[in-house]
Design a protein around this nucleic acid. Structure first.
Lengths: 193, 193
DNA sequence: TTTGCTTTTGAACACTTGTTCATTAATCTT
DNA sequence: AAGATTAATGAACAAGTGTTCAAAAGCAAA
């Protein structure tokens, strides 16, 4: 179907999502009103409802979009467990460093999701964790890694890597390459047999 | 001065703080109303203002109380860097596992603090991080540890340890002793020369 | 220029928000 | 029992909440 007539929908829609993303990340879902989002877009509050059925969906769509992209981008397996782990560490840090607002929301606003929406996001997160755990298990099986409990190892590594987002600034003392190098050094030593 | 007369203040006061703690942790500062806190205490909203000048102070006092206790409890230095590090890891996991609500608030509600309050909490957190960094530096100096950048090492370890709170449940598969043991294993290997 | 469709406005709805305060109730001291 | 002091109520305030919808405005094709 041809583009609808008289439409700014393809312009305003993305602007609504991006304003919501920025404001939610800065102030928190509960503290950001629909009118504040509308003001940021330059429109009246009522107009937002052409682009989202309600505020909750706005949050959920941002989170699901982020998790979908994360799962699509995570490197597929290939090479030794150590190679795979290195690739995963570098990927995780870089992907998250590129999307500070999305990451912040995905971690902080889980409790503001309805139960069904929460379950869906939680499932996607679990699927991502499973990618890392599969690598750890392969390494343990091959004898390259010494990890007592791969589930704990997975969560520990992800928490450590995601923590980069709380302090890393592009203009800061260290380049992302240097950060990736040191985190990889720590992760490698932590899991190696 | 003697205890004030006609007073339930010493009963209601702690109940207000504990209700606020639990509700803030569950729903988030912005999403919890003063009336909701009052209902939990079994009192009308106006009565809360006998115990806090405003909602912001309620949050801030909870956070500062938590950080003060954290800094008072963190083990003082003694023994080799490796011993000190082990003690720190065990302390951090256990202290945080005992206070899930306080920890959750201290990490999630920073953005809801006024600028001055934020600066104070941030200073306390920095002081805590400095305790760990001092241990890492001592270990690097003595040649026991191989950590390229002790600041990064500090933040990485703390993020990893604090992550325990997102999944650990007392009734779960693993005892806290087992959790501490595995995290210590990973941290030790990660920093060792 | 008229017709048909999309997008936006702006007002309205029914509630909830943090906070204040005069009034009432409860307790302790004398 | 009387007086003093504190705590709690409950109503009020002004402002803000998410959401709906008839009406107006904008635009493209006929």
């Amino acid at each position: 179907m041809a583009r609808t007539t008289g439409s700014h929908s393809d312009i305003t829609g993305p602007r609504v999502r991006s304003a919501a993303l920025r404001l939610f990340a800065r102030g928190g879902y509960a503290a950001v009103s629909m009118r504040a989002i509308a003001r940021e877009v330059g429109v009246q509050a009522g107009a937002l409802y052409n682009y989202t059925p309600d505020k909750q969906s706005l949050l959920f769509d941002l989170m699901r979009g982020h998790m979908d992209e994360l799962l699509e981008s995570v490197p597929k397996r290939g090479g030794t467990p150590l190679d795979q782990l290195q690739e995963f560490v570098a990927f995780h840090i870089r992907f998250h460093a590129d999307r500070p607002d999305e990451v912040f929301i995905a971690y902080m606003e889980l409790r503001n999701l309805s139960p069904e929406n929460f379950a869906e996001i939680e499932g996607l997160r679990r699927a991502y964790e499973d990618r890392l755990e599969a690598i750890l298990r392969a390494g343990v099986k091959s004898g390259d890694f010494a990890v007592a409990d791969t589930k704990i190892g997975t969560l520990a590594i992800i928490a450590m890597l995601t923590g980069v987002n709380t302090w890393f600034r592009r203009e800061g003392r260290l380049s992302l390459d240097e950060v990736v190098a040191q985190y990889w050094d720590m992760v490698r030593k932590a899991v190696l047999a």
